[in-house]
């Protein structure tokens, strides 16, 4: 089940309209504009809620995305790189978000650092195509994953705080 905080943040992210993938030429450009618009709104929402937890940007074609996410645990801010590609069958297929630095440090990850999502994610995504986009994948996928896995990895000593110089 999706927790209440995630549900609330999801409802505040604008939904997308255009069903287009990276090979759909002009329609893909339209989809990309919608993706960016939704992401901008989501980041603004997060800033307003004092929970600014990620940044993302893409290559010019919008097929490769990268950025950073942050998780605060015991007053320390942990930072991780994010990367993912847009699958050819997007948006029917959700992007596989990866945190490459954590590859091999948790069982909740596929090879290459791709995060394992809960059983709820795929059917929820499928029911909401094409309305859900990258912002929704972050809210439904990476956000909850960080909340569960990062504290666990910290407690186990698998990851340690890196002070910014």
């Amino acid at each position: 089940m999706v927790d209440e905080a995630t549900k609330k943040s999801l409802t505040c992210i604008p939904v997308l309209k255009t069903k287009a993938g990276p090979r759909d030429k002009d329609l893909w450009v339209q989809r990309l504009k919608e993706e960016y618009q939704a992401l901008i709104q989501y980041v603004q929402n997060n800033k307003g809620a004092d929970n600014d937890w990620f940044r993302l940007e893409s290559n010019k074609e919008g097929t490769r995305w990268f950025g950073k996410c942050w998780y605060i645990h015991n007053l320390l801010k942990y930072e991780f790189d994010i990367e993912f590609d847009i699958p050819v069958t997007y948006p029917a297929t959700a992007p596989e978000i990866a945190l490459p630095e954590l590859d091999g440090k948790t069982a909740k990850m596929y090879r290459g650092g791709k995060i394992c999502l809960t059983d709820h994610f795929k059917p929820l995504w499928a029911r909401n195509v094409p309305k859900f986009g990258i912002a929704h994948a972050m809210a439904l996928g990476l956000g909850p994953w960080l909340a569960v896995e990062i504290p666990d990895m910290i407690e186990k000593g698998v990851i340690s705080y890196k002070e910014k110089t």
């Binding site: 939904v15 504009k33 919608e34 960016y36 618009q37 939704a38 901008i40 980041v43 940007e57």
Partner: peptide, 18 residues
């Protein structure tokens, strides 16, 4: 989302500036 009147380049720049 309402993307009328805004270009993709503008949106990319807006996201980068956040």
């Amino acid at each position: 989302v309402d993307t009328s009147g805004v270009s993709l380049d503008d949106l990319m720049a807006q996201m980068k500036a956040m």
